[in-house]
């Protein structure tokens, strides 16, 4: 933790050198740290969306959870609205930072009605004056996410995946937060439902001015909703840029291979574009390669890559890349 770090007052959320290690038992008494997140920094302005992409197991979800303090970060600073987020301040900040979860089936308690699920944050923070007021607030939230008022007394198992995700979003909105972590919030949904939910996220952002950290593995989805995109690989951030800039001018070899895997609906374009297929597998986060984590699969890798991890450097217009060769 760096006590001298001063956050930029323009940013709503600022993360500096966040590290999250999990101890893994490797022997009878020995433990090895699993470096799920290893030195990640980014910032989100009010009402803005940052997309966070990367393949499974690269630490995207861990970043979101450490940010919202579901995990206690091993090291690094998280600031919300200029205030440091730690065990003491988080209680007061819970109202402003919410989360939408990946699995619409396990994120809703099967024993509670929709009304009680959405009303739980209201109950916890005592945000209503009477039963009627609570009911009115819940119905307003349901309307906001496109649920009918008669659904209030139903149980979660009676809804489809998309509707369940809407319930989860209504719950996240209940405390009127300024920042929501969307942890793969649309990954479990059908493509047509994904579009509905993503458009809803955008509408809500316009109406309520919330900022999102939008975690996903689908670059098309992230590009659609985000202003800026950050690409993660094995717990490290390899590239961040504005969404369009990243799409048109990817610099890091990992980003280019990710972009080449995006399916295009136009068969002519799809045929002409060449897929870059990476060789080998993702290294185990328990035995990270020295230097740049991507060097084992990178065709440009040199000795310098093995020796030292490149820093994120600005290549103009806020396009940051961590690579020696590009």
């Amino acid at each position: 933790m760096d006590n001298n770090y001063k956050p930029n007052p323009e940013n709503l959320v600022e993360v500096n050198d966040l590290k999250m290690y999990f101890p893994i038992k490797t022997g009878l008494l020995s433990t090895t740290p699993l470096k799920a997140v290893d030195g990640v920094s980014f910032a989100i302005k009010p009402g803005e969306t940052l997309g966070l992409v990367g393949e499974s197991g690269c630490g995207k979800t861990t970043v979101g959870r450490a940010l919202i303090r579901l995990y206690k970060p091993t090291d690094g600073d998280v600031f919300f609205d200029g205030k440091r987020v730690d065990d003491r301040s988080i209680g007061a900040l819970r109202k402003d930072m919410q989360m939408v979860f990946q699995d619409p089936y396990s994120s809703l308690n099967p024993r509670m009605t929709v009304e009680d699920i959405i009303g739980e944050p209201l109950d916890v923070h005592k945000l209503y004056s009477s039963r009627a007021d609570r009911r009115e607030k819940i119905l307003h939230l349901m309307e906001l996410v496109g649920l009918n008022a008669e659904h209030a007394t139903r149980y979660a198992h009676e809804f489809s995946g998309g509707q369940r995700q809407r319930i989860g979003i209504a719950r996240a909105l209940a405390t009127n937060p300024r920042f929501i972590v969307c942890d793969e919030a649309v990954s479990a949904l059908d493509v047509s439902i994904q579009a509905q939910v993503i458009n809803m996220f955008e509408d809500l952002q316009q109406k309520l001015g919330v900022a999102y950290l939008f975690i996903a593995h689908d670059l098309l989805v992230v590009h659609h909703i985000s202003k800026r995109i950050a690409v993660m690989y094995l717990g490290k951030m390899v590239e961040t840029a504005d969404a369009d800039e990243l799409n048109e001018n990817p610099m890091h070899p990992y980003t280019t291979s990710l972009l080449s895997a995006v399916p295009y609906p136009d068969p002519i374009v799809a045929k002409s574009s060449k897929r870059i297929i990476l060789e080998g597998d993702v290294p185990s986060p328990l035995r990270m390669p020295s230097g740049c984590p991507f060097r084992t699969r990178c065709k440009y890798a040199t000795e310098q890559c093995a020796a030292e991890m490149p820093k994120l450097t600005d290549r103009g217009n806020g396009h940051m890349v961590a690579c020696w060769n590009k």
């Binding site: 959870r65 919202i68 579901l70 209680g91 819970r94 109202k95 930072m97 919410q98 989360m99 979860f101 990946q102 699995d103 396990s106 994120s107 809703l108 308690n109 699920i117 739980e120 944050p121 916890v124 923070h125 989860g168 719950r171 209940a174 405390t175």
Partner: peptide, 17 residues
């Protein structure tokens, strides 16, 4: 392990609740 427990934590609910 269920996400609804995490969701309750994110909402600020105490252990007893």
């Amino acid at each position: 392990q269920n996400e609804y427990v995490l969701a309750a934590k994110v909402s600020g609910a105490r252990s007893s609740r």
